[in-house]
Amino acid sequence: MIEITNLAKRYKNATAVSSVSLVAQDGMVTGLLGPNGAGKTTTLRAISGLLKPDAGGVRVDGLDVSIDPSGVRRRLGVLPETVGLYDHLTVCEHLMYAGELNGLAAESLNRRVQVMLDRFALSPLSSRRASTLSLGQKRRVAMARILVHEPANVVLDEPTSGLDVLSAREVRREVRRLADSGRAVLFSSHVMPEVSAVCDRVVVMSRGLVVAEGTPGEIMASAGGGSLEDAFVKLIGSDEGLN
């Protein structure tokens, strides 16, 4: 479970997040929805402790990230915006490296890497170098990499951006599977149909604030009907930054 309370983060000349509180429950997919610049990435980075908030705090499974960042990271699998694979390492080596950094012992490491290769259909690509992979394949490696250590909480920053329809659908299926296996999944997006199809709960952000929260159905109703997209535009006050 991921709990964010009254998070605020200011950069030198701009406020990225004014005050954000949200909870990502175990076994649920929580969508973080908002236009570009709403503060989604800042919020997600604060969860892993990469950014230190000016106010408020983050707890993951009850651990405070400002006190025990390593403990929190062990319970987290975070997919950042940039895939960031190493061109000269093979697919298998990426997974091994991630496992080693997470402190997996040799025997469970090999087993977990094999499970991940199978689950993300990467076995045939296992000894290919990352530089030779397509974007969709790279995203699958990145997903597999953050799940090697079986984290109880998963944070995904725009995991489908730039992917073709089939690859994006594959990612959404995986997101669903993660929640169904009891994990807390928090993922950000600005693609409406995706959010309404996958998420159990949606948190809508705009200009550093949470402007709405609930199931996709509740949000559509509260904004006065229509599609989620219409509701979204109504909630944030304009369609600026949507695409």
Binding site: R73, L76, P80, Y86, L101, N102, G103, A142
Partner: peptide
């Protein structure tokens, strides 16, 4: 190359 963030996300 954008891989520093992934590295820092590890425990």
């Amino acid at each position: 190359r954008g891989s520093l963030e992934s590295l820092l996300l590890n425990p």
